[in-house]
Design a protein around this nucleic acid. Structure first.
Length: 1123
RNA sequence: AGUCCCGUAGCUCAGUUGGUUAGAGCACUACACUGAUAAUGUAGGGGUCGGCAGUUCAACUCUGCCCGGGACUACCA
């Protein structure tokens, strides 16, 4: 066994990463950490499945670092944390990638390529970068079980998904309805959102628009509108698609918006009428210049039409006002139509502030229709023509672009004809051409329609309240993601459109008879197999493709004996109750359902009986990017609430984006995307992780700057490494291997007890931060400790104890204290910086064997010892640091170097408490600032200049408005007034004719200056320094200079720190006395066994040294034992 | 367009229930220290705390509106 702590030439985090990675693998440390905790309380974690058909980016490192941190932390807290990897494998991105690769379009599928071959391509494509992903996982140190991942295209996985769907169906939460989708009549197909986002689909077009007049029905509800008017009342609504007007079933207003009732005349029929429109849009239709015109003087046909505002009201007041159907070709059958509703989408940017609602032809319209139960009309067919019911317009194309025979010279588009009709019937208020951007089909280049298409839906709205209620029990980090983003999403929930008309995905397990009377959902493969058997018996199918499948046999072999994807599943026919043929609904399901089903499907629930659901559901913790809020977070939540009446995760950490250092989103297009592999290779995985975690809160966006990683490397890892190196250097010299018993705490010096107190305080807060899912705070706290407390104060002040003198109990105490700090830090940083922590821990533990485990990740998280925490000690050390810093600053001001000893520090103290505090750290201060003594001066000293400062927090609430003059008075208290306050305990004066009584507690009295001294102030501390240099002090200073020069020479000559030397110094009158008076000091500092002052030195061996600007001489040093 | 997040020194970030002169690191400059030396200390410059109102004795902090950056959702008469 080694007895020396390893010492390194430099810190190479990349190398440490690589070496530890290999070492983990060879020694199966991850597996051991699982074995160690097996059977303990599980901490359930879900890995959100990435899609492996794209390369991983640096932004994947952040979410995975967060996941890893808490899984490692919980493991150290004794939980069993199983982490199963997973892959999201279905969906459009995969299909697009395949189509690009093969150079085909959707239309080719089934024609130039069979669905079977196409899906085979998808299956390969989706795992294209799996190895790359696995590599990143390993290199960044994300511990995840990669050997047995769940894969969403797996037959077992699909079976679980089918089960969940069938349960939804049984609860009447799955239904077929229709939704408004972008649709290309020319191509006869719906378009996905993705297709709509292809470049060039949105083009500017000029449309004929019309403001239509909807005639209000006078009844109880609307009576108030007719108060001051006679004749007809119309609500005005604008449309760019006049062909949707026959399908109008409602009008929408903004709830809080202001509307006006305006008397005027119709510009086409010249009839008197009253109209309603938004207040802010009044002048768009009624120019202000017409305001002076009177209604009475109106001549039919005159160009400038007069108007008069007769009433003003809120949109809300119009709710449920009824109007006559504008173009009554057909009646809706499924709702209470032709009334005013409110909608949050209503704006006053265009139109009249009142929106014409045709639920069949707009997504907003559809949603509004659903929410208000107003019913719909669909008077256009899938070819884009008006239907039979449309009278004179029947069978005409709603847009001329769809009509091959349309002749612009001869024919008029149908919208023009509709507008003409409206004008004639006193139903149009204004008509004009309007240019706006409108989506076009990327394949046919013709405008698209929004059209209702059949789809399967999950009735999420039925469980909305429960989803909201359960969401409130989830611990969201940050909270705003849960209450805001996610909460709002739930508040505005619509039913989940499950259908996708694609090829590569989980098939919908629903079969229907041709006449749609009978319907069946399949919830397991066993059920399917039995069903097929019946179909075979009925003669509908020749054979059973699941013939070799044995229900209950969970082997992969059994489950891989067939493929349940399209096209095979499409060939399966079933038999209905009545003996009819049943065909599968051709849709696939939304891939998001796949990922939302992972809690159950990852373990093949409920078919695999070897695990109980509560062993892996619900999750204690998940973490992904905030972009998953309405994606994975939502689908997880929706499915678990609907089917299990439970949350599916108890804590969710959502992280922000990674931006480049300019704050732009990283993208391949911009070329600013960072390769995570390069970053890790260059800076090492730990520095990368530490930087990502500590630079900003994970939920804030991170401006990724490589220089930030360099800083982390230097500042944190460098300092920690230096501290270890310092320890190793002297521990190796003294052979410290922690074999001695712990030096009792009370026998340790103040500074040891202090750093141990700080360490235990740190352990406590870091533990709290981790358990509160605050990795940034944890990392920053550790970093502050290492930098400020451990390195810059403890080690700095304790250095001498490590290299000076014999192997005493004080030295052992120092070694033990520093060792414990390093050991606990290794443990505390191990979740964030797992590689470096491992190296640090093992470098220590391999020598001392204090832990019987071989890895830091197999230890339990350190527990703070309240006995060791001494807040008063921490406080006084802070005082020592402050005072030292103030004295150093005074030295700086007066240009007296630290090597020059000084005599005295003066410190005004107001009470015993401060004095006692400082007394116990006095020696630390004195040695740090190289001063001989510290003297306290009490209140009585006449040369103190005191000032009173008001305590705003105490006086503010008492005196309120008088605060300003009081503060001024208190600040300007004279010496006598302060003395009076101090002796009598209170002081009264009047301000603005009010009596004010100031108590001692209301002010803070500080000694700001000491007459005749160099003084520094910091808060309520004041320090004075005696800068007189006596001859004795000067000699001491010179001796120290000499020591320094000798030490430098030792180093230049590459002597070991333990080598003894002999010294000869060339005699100089000014120096000799200083040397002789401090000879023993000089010798012990430099390990000089002999020191001679000589009159001459050989030019060969002498070296010139400069002790001060004015004093130089020659010196020769020789190592004892050297010839 | 809606919802949410962010805006503090040149850069990256802290800033606790509103309370005295708004902090740290990096970078820059100068000086020191050095048996941890690719480390460290001290000092200095640098801020209308995104803007404007409001509440209050007192606003970086609370409220409203606006501006800028970002995300998600939606795509509308």
């Amino acid at each position: 066994m080694n007895t020396k702590y390893p010492e390194y030439d430099n810190l190479d985090l990349t190398r440490i990463g690589r070496e530890i990675e290999t070492w983990w693998e060879e020694n199966k440390i991850f597996e051991k950490s699982l074995a160690l905790t097996a059977g303990k309380t599980p901490f359930i974690f879900y890995e959100g499945p990435p899609s492996a058909n794209g390369k991983p980016g640096i932004h994947h490192v952040i979410a995975r670092a967060i996941k890893d941190i808490f899984c490692r932390y919980k493991t150290m807290k004794g939980f069993y944390v199983h982490r199963k990897a997973g892959w999201d494998t279905h969906g459009l991105p995969v299909e697009i990638a395949v189509e690009k690769k093969l150079g085909i379009t959707k239309e080719d599928i089934g024609k130039t390529i069979t669905v079977e071959d196409y899906n085979k391509e998808c299956r390969e494509e989706v795992m294209k970068y799996k190895d790359l992903w696995d590599d990143l996982t390993v290199k960044m140190g994300y511990w995840l079980n990669l050997n047995d991942p769940y894969i969403t295209f797996d037959n077992k996985y699909i079976e679980s998904v089918w089960y969940l769907l069938s349960e939804l169906y049984k609860k009447d939460l799955l239904y077929k309805g229709f939704t408004i989708q972008p649709y290309s009549p020319a191509a006869g197909t719906g378009l996905s959102a993705h297709e709509l986002n292809q470049p060039g689909t949105y083009k500017m077009v000029k449309d004929n628009t019309v403001v239509a007049q909807f005639k209000v029905i006078r009844d109880e509800r609307s009576e108030f509108l007719f108060r001051d008017i006679s004749g007809d009342l119309y609500i005005l609504a604008w449309t760019t698609t006049p062909w949707t007007l026959p399908s109008n079933t409602a009008l929408a207003v903004g709830k809080e918006m202001d509307y006006l009732v305006v008397k005027t005349f119709n510009p086409y029929t010249h009839l008197p009428e009253t109209v309603v429109l938004a207040k802010v849009l009044l002048n768009r239709y009624f120019p202000e210049t017409h305001a002076a015109l009177t209604l009475e003087e109106y001549q039919p046909g005159q160009k400038n039409i007069p108007y008069k505002v007769v009433a003003e009201l809120k949109g809300d007041e119009l709710t449920d006002v009824r109007y006559e159907q504008l173009l009554p070709y057909a009646q809706p059958v499924d709702g209470d139509a032709f009334r005013v509703v409110t909608g949050d989408f209503v704006t006053t940017d265009d139109g009249t502030g009142i929106v014409h609602i045709a639920p069949s032809f707009g997504a907003d319209d559809f949603r509004t229709g659903k929410q208000n139960g107003i019913g719909s009309l669909t008077l256009v067919d899938k070819q884009g023509r008006f239907t039979e019911e449309m009278g004179e317009f029947a069978h005409r194309y709603v847009r001329a672009e769809y009509d091959k025979d349309f002749d612009p010279g001869k024919d008029t588009p149908v919208d023009v004809d509709i507008i003409v009709k409206l004008k004639k019937e006193n139903k149009a208020f204004k008509s004009e051409k309007y240019e706006h951007s409108y989506p076009h089909c990327w394949r046919t280049d013709k405008p698209i329609l929004y059209y209702p298409l059949d789809s399967w839906f999950i009735r999420t709205t039925a469980c909305k309240d429960q989803m909201i209620a359960l969401n409130k029990t989830i611990n969201w980090k940050p909270e705003a993601t849960g209450t805001g983003r996610f909460g709002n999403w739930l508040e505005n929930l619509v039913d989940w459109n499950l259908s996708r008309s694609r090829f590569w995905g989980t098939p919908l397990p629903i079969w229907r008879t041709e006449n749609r009377d009978e319907e069946k959902i399949i919830g397991s493969l066993e059920e399917l197999k039995t069903g097929i058997d019946k179909a075979v018996a009925a003669g509908f199918m020749a054979s059973n493709p699941l013939g070799h499948f044995i229900p209950g046999d969970m082997s992969d072999e059994n489950y891989n004996s067939f493929d349940i994807h399209r096209p095979f599943v499409d060939d399966i026919l079933l038999v209905s109750e009545k003996g009819e043929k049943m065909f599968r609904e051709p849709d696939l399901i939304d891939v998001w359902f796949d990922s939302g089903a992972m809690p159950y499907a990852q373990y093949h629930y409920p078919f695999d009986k070897t695990r109980k659901l509560e062993e892996y559901f619900p999750a204690d913790f998940i973490a992904e990017g905030v972009d998953q809020t309405r994606g994975w977070f939502y689908t997880l939540h929706a499915i678990s609430v609907m089917l299990f009446d439970s949350v599916s995760f108890k804590t969710c950490v959502s992280n922000g984006l990674i931006l480049d250092k300019e704050g732009n989103k990283m993208s391949k297009k911009l070329g600013n995307a960072l390769d995570p592999f390069e970053t890790i290779a260059k800076y090492g995985p730990d520095a990368t992780r530490w930087y990502i975690i500590t630079n900003s809160q994970p939920w804030d966006n991170l401006k990724f700057d490589l220089e930030g990683i360099t800083e982390v490397q230097r500042k944190f890892f460098g300092t920690l490494y230096n501290t270890y190196a310092f320890f190793a250097l002297y521990a190796n010299i003294d052979g410290f291997i922690f074999k001695e018993k712990d030096v009792p705490v009370e026998q340790r010096p103040e500074i040891d007890r202090w750093i141990l107190s700080e360490l235990n305080s740190l352990i406590r807060s870091v533990d709290e931060f981790y358990s509160d899912y605050e990795p940034t705070k944890a990392g920053r706290a550790i970093s502050d400790f290492v930098d400020e407390h451990l390195s810059n104060w403890y080690v700095r002040l304790s250095r001498r104890r490590f290299w000076k003198g014999e192997y005493t109990s004080d030295k052992i105490s120092a070694f033990q204290t520093l060792y414990k700090c390093l050991e606990a830090i290794a443990q505390m940083i191990s979740p964030i910086a797992p590689f470096f922590a491992e190296r640090l821990f093992n470098d220590l533990n391999n020598i001392t064997g204090r832990y019987q485990v071989e890895s830091v990740h197999l230890t339990t998280f350190p527990v703070d010892d309240p006995e060791l925490i001494d807040k008063s000690l921490e406080e006084r050390m802070e005082l020592a640091q402050k005072i030292s810093s103030m004295v150093l600053s005074l030295r700086k001001k007066t240009s007296i170097r630290v090597r020059q000893p000084l005599n005295k520090i003066l410190l005004p103290v107001s009470g015993d408490h401060l004095k006692i505090q400082i007394e116990s750290v006095k020696n630390l201060i004195l040695s740090e600032v190289n001063v001989k003594e510290l003297e306290y001066i009490t209140d009585a000293a006449a040369f103190l200049v005191k000032r009173a400062k008001p305590d705003y927090k105490k006086l503010g609430p008492k005196y309120g408005k008088l605060m300003k003059p009081i503060a001024e008075t208190v600040t300007n208290f004279t010496r006598d007034e302060i003395a009076k306050l101090e002796s009598e305990g209170q002081l009264s004066f009047s301000v603005n004719n009010s009596e004010v009584i100031i108590l001692m507690a209301d002010v803070e009295i500080i000694s700001e200056d000491i007459q005749g001294w160099q003084v520094a102030n910091m808060g309520n501390l004041t320090v004075a320094l005696d800068i007189t240099i006596t001859p004795g002090l000067w000699e001491e200073g010179l001796a120290r200079e000499l020591v320094n020069r000798i030490q430098n020479l030792r180093k230049d000559n590459d002597f070991e720190v333990t080598d003894k030397i002999s010294v000869r110094l060339m005699s100089r009158v000014e120096i000799n006395l200083a040397v002789l008076n401090n000879l023993s000091y000089i010798c012990s500092e430099t390990l000089a066994q002999s020191f001679d002052i000589v009159d001459s030195l050989d030019t060969e061996e002498r070296v010139a040294i400069e002790l001060t600007d004015a004093l130089s001489t020659f010196i020769s040093i020789r190592r004892i034992g050297d010839t």
